[in-house]
């Protein structure tokens, strides 16, 4: 067992997940590659969304991959940081909106 849970070198081994379940793995990567092709959204816009989601799910592999991806697709630093703020706003908002639930409960339990 390695001494840390995350190893940067593991990112390039992502494709190896097909070794234990080839068909599902292949289907996943086909789908993944299709998703990131230019469509109604440009590849750059998709890379920025992926970067924001990477922060929301706090995946260091994804942050590494989509920081490079955004630079490669020509996104600038302001766009990238704004994308991270979008993730932070949603994460923060998602916590805070539950404050309404808390307030409802306070009301329910209080005289």
């Amino acid at each position: 067992m390695e001494s840390t849970y995350y190893n940067p070198a593991d990112l390039k081994k992502f494709g190896n997940i097909t070794e234990l379940q080839p068909e599902m793995g292949r289907k996943f990567f086909d789908y993944y590659n299709e998703v990131f092709k230019e469509g109604a959204l440009t590849e750059r816009e998709k890379a920025l969304i992926a970067l924001a989601v990477s922060h929301a799910v706090q995946c260091p592999y994804c942050i590494d991959a989509y920081t490079s991806g955004c630079l490669e697709k020509g996104a600038d630093e302001n766009q990238m940081m704004e994308a991270v703020h979008v993730a932070a706003a949603i994460k923060g908002g998602a916590a805070l909106v539950h404050g309404v639930q808390m307030m409802n409960k306070i009301k329910e339990l209080s005289m």
């Binding site: 230019e38 440009t42 590849e43 750059r44 490079s68 630079l71 490669e72 697709k73 020509g74």
Partner: peptide
């Protein structure tokens, strides 16, 4: 050409930008 250790994007999309 990229200002760092990364590869360039597709010419078509970067040209438009």
């Amino acid at each position: 050409n990229p200002s760092g250790a990364f590869l360039p994007a597709s010419q078509k999309s970067l040209e438009a930008e």
